[in-house]
């Protein structure tokens, strides 16, 4: 009989036995109350640390499968993040405009420079007009040549195609208040056309607002996708650990104890996915920023593509881990109750 030699010595048995007797004396009461609250709290925290560590180690043990899940979550989160960055960069671009409307008046070609300047001074008398700026055809040509890079083409023309322009800065910014002024100007014989760029700006802001809502909606859909991916992954993890859950329940594990490893698993999936998204966005920016900056430089000089700030990066990580915990909580709430020892 192989076991005979392994029987424990008698003395330790009795010691163990004495402890059991002490416990048995107090039986019926709450045996756990003998430990101080501080001890229980420390043990609770120790359990959290251990579960967090073990669930992360578990993910690295099957690193390929985990990396795939992280990548899926990462892509789903990177897409709205990229769109958000494009939007915030576009807002920065339009933000260079100071928000006040401008009215540009294009004069008839027949109007001389002296008449044009005189007309501009007359306009100042209008109470709605704060400032005027007269740009002669030659000055306009010089500026256009410098800004557009079409200098060679313009030089090949036998005459200057650009009209004189008077730019008006009105004292009010509401489109409605400016309409009578615009109407009055259009009636003037000297004026070829009036361009009122407020409507254009309003349209741009409306488009940006629409795009923002679109990104928000898309972000919402993709967040739902992330929830489902994590929820489904956690469901599989629960299924894989069914035996363990049953044993834990059999020896008195509470629901929160059973739930804990899965919530941490969701947390790590979400956090890893968000990190992956951050890396993807960063890589895309590196890939795209040089051509974008070159393109924009040809229009209006210096422009730097803005990446995610520290706060935005932190928000992305928080959002990812939050989605992870939520997805896990949904999956756990649905499946854990069904697993009972039998």
């Amino acid at each position: 009989m192989a076991m005979a030699g392994k029987r424990p010595p008698r003395r330790p048995n009795l010691q163990a036995a004495t402890r059991v007797v002490n416990k048995a004396d107090g039986a019926g009461g709450a045996s756990t109350s003998k430990r101080s609250l501080g001890d229980q709290w420390r043990a609770y925290l120790a359990n959290h640390r251990r579960v967090a560590r073990e669930s992360l180690q578990g993910l690295f043990k099957v690193w390929l499968a985990s990396a795939m899940t992280w990548l899926v979550i990462g892509i789903a989160m990177a897409l709205p993040t990229m769109l958000y960055l494009i939007l915030s960069n576009a807002s920065t671009l339009s933000g260079d405009w100071d928000g006040k409307p401008r009215i540009s008046i294009y004069l008839q070609e027949s109007v001389s420079e002296a008449d044009g300047r005189g007309f501009a001074q007359q306009l100042l008398a209008d109470e709605l007009v704060v400032a005027v700026d007269y740009v002669s055809p030659s000055a306009a040509l010089a500026e256009f040549t410098q800004r557009s890079g079409f200098g060679d083409v313009l030089r090949s023309l036998d005459r200057n195609p650009l009209p004189a322009v008077i730019t008006i800065e009105p004292g009010v910014s509401q489109t409605g208040q400016l309409k009578p002024l615009v109407a009055r100007l259009e009636a003037e014989a000297m004026i070829a056309s009036v361009s009122f760029d407020l409507a254009w700006m309003e349209r741009l802001f409306a488009i940006l607002d629409l795009a923002e809502r679109f990104v928000t909606a898309l972000g919402g859909f993709l967040a739902l996708g992330v929830l489902l991916v994590i929820g489904n992954t956690i469901r599989l993890a629960i299924e894989n650990r069914r035996a363990e859950i049953e044993v834990v329940k059999l020896v008195g594990g509470t629901d929160s104890f059973v739930r804990r490893p899965f919530l941490y698993l969701g947390f790590w999936y979400g956090l890893g996915g968000a990190l992956m998204a951050w890396v993807l966005v960063g890589a895309s920016l590196v890939f795209l920023s040089a051509p974008i900056e070159m393109l924009l430089a040809s229009y209006q000089g210096d422009f730097l593509v803005i990446g995610l700030s520290g706060g935005e990066s932190l928000l992305l990580l928080l959002l990812g881990s939050g989605l992870g915990i939520l997805g896990a909580a949904l999956a756990v709430g649905r499946h854990l109750r069904q697993i009972e020892p039998s």
Partner: peptide, 11 residues
């Protein structure tokens, strides 16, 4: 160790 971990004993 499982029942002790569940009951919240110190390591």
């Amino acid at each position: 160790a499982l029942p002790l971990t569940i009951a919240g004993y110190q390591p």
